[in-house]
Amino acid sequence: MQTEIIISGFGGQGVLFAGQLLAYAAMDAGKDVTWIPSYGPEMRGGTASCTVIISDEEIGSPNVRNPKAVLVLNLPSLDKYEVLVAHGGVLIANASLINRAIERKDINSLMIPANEIAESLGNRRLLNMVMLGAMLEMLPVLSLEQIEQALDDHIPERHRKLLDLNISAIRHGAEFARKEGVEITEVVE
């Protein structure tokens, strides 16, 4: 079985890197993984998204219609992907930029003020890591330790000074989800 995750938001919110981090951690865990960005002729401030597929066997289609999990960092992404999350899947929305509730009741969902949490840590650009941490709590496709190790191993050298902050952001995201009492969605191997 495979787990498909879509991360979507504005360009600049770090959606592509969050997906790459997942892909690195999955690779280091010995899994098959495919990361693919949407690559339309986008302008600055336009939407950006990527799909990550993590599997124990050869991955077929790189594109999925109904992903197991979706992280939406802005409202247009929620409008697009809420209807597409697989039944019983996970939807995490950035409450800081989204002024409506998630309507679906057949999925495991969470609204998380990712910008505020990131700002409380001193850098609002950490919001992608906050979102990722929350997802790992709700859908433990990889452990926090695996993600943190991948971050340590693959973070671009120019950003290494931000390593601890990134790890802290992942943990704060996970902790927020835990305190909200979210369900844990089983990962089918």
């Binding site: 892909a23 690779m27 098959d32 993984v33 495919t34 990361w35 693919i36 960005p37 690559y39 790189p62």
Partner: peptide, 10 residues
């Protein structure tokens, strides 16, 4: 094709 060119895989 664009998919193969843009995707990342191990």
């Amino acid at each position: 094709d664009g998919n193969i060119g843009q995707m990342m895989e191990p």
